[in-house]
Design a binder for these strands. Structure first.
Lengths: 191, 191
DNA sequence: GCGATTACTTAACTAAGGTTAACTTTTTTT
DNA sequence: AAAAAAAGTTAACCTTAGTTAAGTAATCGC
């Protein structure tokens, strides 16, 4: 499990054994039971996260209802807006499953960057990837109606539909759980 | 007008007179008449853009209809996904108004970075800002229905509603022009 | 300034999503 | 294993968005 981070980083840049051990040494890994709130509305995020095992959900509370906007699973990083801006968080992060997560703080990330300068390239590349993905995802969302969003999710991330309660999938797709349930029925009747 | 870029960069980092002239020298500025397509579906983007004057629209063609996903106005940069990925573009960029735009190519950006290394910090900071904005914007879109999206746009970017044809505002908000027209009437009747 | 084009509005109709509440199924807890 | 809680489904009703088409207003090009 500890090696997952090294494996991940190595898929972007080559690491010497020395660099690997520096990274290992800085690597703080924690496990959280299902339901743990990693970040709450109003909190100042102290860490960014890298998911080794499990699933984390990002959500807002709007008029008393939870509205999910993102899911994160194995080998995905989470950099909270609050971590970047140092402002209180607008949203929540919580574990949908028992999770194993690597933590990064400002200080330790700073230290890592000094000891392994080539990580800067990784960060630049990941930022670009994230920006591209985020643009494509939000454009797709705008260009589709709820039904097509669901069909698209089934194609692109069937794993999410399988492992996550439908009520969260529903708000993630911009609709209510009742609508998703009805929509699913409509689709199965069609074919 | 030429100074707009220097002014913009200076709001992030301090520039020496020398650095300013290096940037000025590399600065290629072009004017485009209204309706010019800066990037078409299938094109490989050669440049990224910085809008000095005017308004650019990003849109897709879905089932024969244009679906707008973003507007760019004065002092905003446009980095096409195609520019980053070197893959054919999925979307179009076109000028909604006569535009004055600064162009950046890979080669010239590379050269600029070598001559003015502190620009790297600007780029890093802008990337972060972009990512944060993009996350907040797309979360907001998910959390609102069409009516609230329109009201929110009126509050946050009234300039767009004033200067851009409603048909494009409509698809940008995820609905049809007919719906937006009806919705506007509904709102005015309410108050 | 006039004709042509484009943008916007309105109306009628259809389809889909929101809301509430009852009910069933599944999961969790003890 | 039983009870409690949570998740999912279904139905009825209401509101809103999509569609098509016609009509009005605004803008553009010559």
């Amino acid at each position: 499990m500890d090696d997952a981070i090294i494996t991940f980083i190595s898929s972007y840049i080559d690491l010497t054994p020395d660099e690997k051990s520096v990274i290992q040494a800085q690597n703080i890994i924690k496990t959280y039971p299902k339901g743990t709130v990693l970040l709450a509305h109003g909190d100042l995020a102290q860490d960014c996260f890298f998911i080794l095992k499990g699933c984390v959900r990002r959500y807002y509370i709007v008029d008393g209802d939870e509205r999910t906007t993102e899911f994160f699973t194995e080998n995905q990083g989470i950099t909270p807006v609050s971590y970047l801006t140092k402002q209180p968080s607008d949203y929540y992060l919580s574990c949908l499953e028992p999770c194993v997560i690597a933590l990064g703080s400002d200080e330790r990330n700073q230290l890592l960057l000094e000891k392994v300068p080539k990580l800067a390239r990784l960060i630049a590349q990941m930022s670009t990837e994230l920006l591209v993905k985020s643009q494509i995802t939000s454009d797709n969302f705008k260009n589709m109606n709820p039904e097509n969003r669901y069909l698209h999710l089934l194609e692109t991330r069937p794993d999410l539909v399988a492992r996550i309660p439908l009520q969260h999938i529903a708000t993630f797709l911009g609709m209510t759980p009742v609508s998703l349930s009805r929509l699913r029925k409509r689709i199965t009747l069609k074919r």
